[in-house]
Design a binder for these strands. Structure first.
Lengths: 187, 187, 187, 187
DNA sequence: ACGTACGGGACGGCCCGTTTGT
DNA sequence: ACAAACGGGCCGTCCCGTACGT
């Protein structure tokens, strides 16, 4: 009807879902809570998402897609150092610019299960680790520490920090965990 | 009867609780599952722990106590570098030697809530961050990355690694994230 | 469909709740009993009343509202004797015409607690006693005896008596307990 | 052993039972609560009372026995007025001197059921009403109002009043409800 | 594009009472 | 004269999902 579309009433559901997932985690958020928050009934929710899994997918899929895109850019680099650096900074960028979603994705049991099943989340993670990791199990371990650390530190305390500053510190910490040297900037 | 003492039947409940919490997380483990695993009824569980909170407390309190002890040792060091180093290596030690409990403590929403309420978990964490952190918000951020990274990387993949090796790599990654130099060993 | 309107299916729940509360008291009536009586499941009950407190409130609130209305009429009288007389006869009217609800309201521990919390029941009672009572603790005591007596005598034995007759006897007993003279009827 | 008996440890159970029944009613008091209050386990309770019914009986039987005794004294009077007067004043005496037990006996659904079954409570009540009541249903009704009123007004507010004063007011209110004249005192 | 009504099932909590020891 | 351990069962709450109307 209207040319610009009314924000798609479906998007309103997603927005409040993100808010509630962030506050109470996925497992702690019932469809009833989402409906109540919007002042509608559960039926309205079910009209847009036929199951709970569809909800969490709708909320997190954009993020996963952006992760995959960033991942493919990194994989296209020529040297191993450049690939790791691109991977790391791309990851930090996504984390910083999607802070509310990060704890939902990272710290919720059951979310991983749903997402890995039909959306290839674990494939993405495997390739991320592969790019970041040096050789051997020690490399994968440090890559894991870096990613878990960067994602795990996100929370209420980081939500109000300046994005650029936050990005800088996370990059530095990640490089440190990985044992990488900071790259020379365009000189 | 049995010469070695019956281990207190209560301990049997804690043991299977740890196993199930590790496998399915706290929120994903019902009292019924614990009862079934032991071949008893929920009532038997209720006899030992009258609420779910009591269960998780009984499971994690020993770990928190050890954390506090390790923390106090670190706080007693004289130089700031020594305090940070003692804190980090004590933390890594505890993580490595209590791997099954770490994901339960770290990755489960609601567990934190219960533990911070009546057991001073957040006080412990605050003091840990204070010891690890350099000045300013950047310092606390890096301390958070280090701790979240070390705790967050624990999982099925690390469970079968050699403890000493694992400890070494985690220490290295933690020092890197914090920007610390490895200390000179008694020479 | 049906011309008379479907009575709102919610009202059907209230009706059987009243029946069962009258028969087994509030505390002695489980949601399961209500559901069984209607041939539905507990979920259906939950759909209309999310807690037991909501049920008892839905059942008794109309009565409390009528009590408040009758109370305010009595408070508007000019002489103290007229206020007491209006209060007493209004109370008796309500008791007689709501006999099934009276034991539920009066004789059930826990009901009072729920109703006083969010529905001002104790405020109503206090004002009722104030209207009935002469000065001093002795006055409040007699008012308490009168009200407790009138409400407490309701039961299976009174349920089948003629309403006008019942009303007359209760009024007489109440006046006696209070030490009031019967008012002269406009002659 | 000791000749005077150590208050009979059984009596300690009864004492706390009375306290808890008064505070939470019979139905709202679990064996566990009684055991906890005494710092023992439920087994200790079960050692003295094989079932919950035995507890409430042990608590209230003395009162019922005293009621029966007072009742038989009243029944032995020669005139109907003397019988009613003796009944009423005996009832008031018992109510005043056993205030904590009155709400337990009067206002708890299920208590009556237990007590009438094996202890003849309803027989006592029937005879009490017969003594107090004038002829016809109206008489029984007023007797019911008087007894329910006297018993029902007992509560926290009356607990701290002077016993003699309380007795006097209750007697007056009871006589009023019954339409009795105060008896001439031995002059 | 919703609301009304409900089924089926799980969960945490708590109860009463028994068995077995000591 | 107790304690430890447990069975069996009910209760209130709350969940996800469906069927059906409009």
């Amino acid at each position: 009807m209207s040319p610009v579309a009314v924000t798609g009433s479906r998007q309103r559901f997603i927005d409040v879902a993100v808010r509630l997932f962030t506050r109470h985690s996925f497992a702690g958020t019932s469809l009833q809570m989402i409906a109540d928050e919007l002042g509608v009934t559960k039926s309205a929710v079910y009209h847009h998402f036929r199951t709970r899994e569809e909800m969490i997918a709708a909320v997190l899929e954009p993020l996963i897609d952006r992760m995959r895109a960033s991942l493919e850019i990194a994989e296209a680099q020529r040297t191993r150092a450049a690939r790791a650096e691109a991977m790391l900074s791309g990851f930090v960028d996504l984390v910083v610019s999607n802070q509310p979603l990060i704890p939902v994705l990272a710290s919720d049991p059951g979310v991983r299960e749903v997402l890995t099943a039909h959306h290839g989340l674990d494939d993405v993670i495997r390739r991320q680790v592969a790019l970041l990791a040096g050789p051997g199990p020690a490399g994968r371990l440090k890559a894991g520490v870096a990613m878990a650390g960067i994602a795990g530190v996100i929370g209420p305390a980081t939500m109000h920090m300046d994005h650029d500053e936050l990005r800088g510190h996370l990059l530095a910490a990640g490089r440190g965990a990985l044992g990488l040297r900071p790259p020379r900037r365009r000189c």
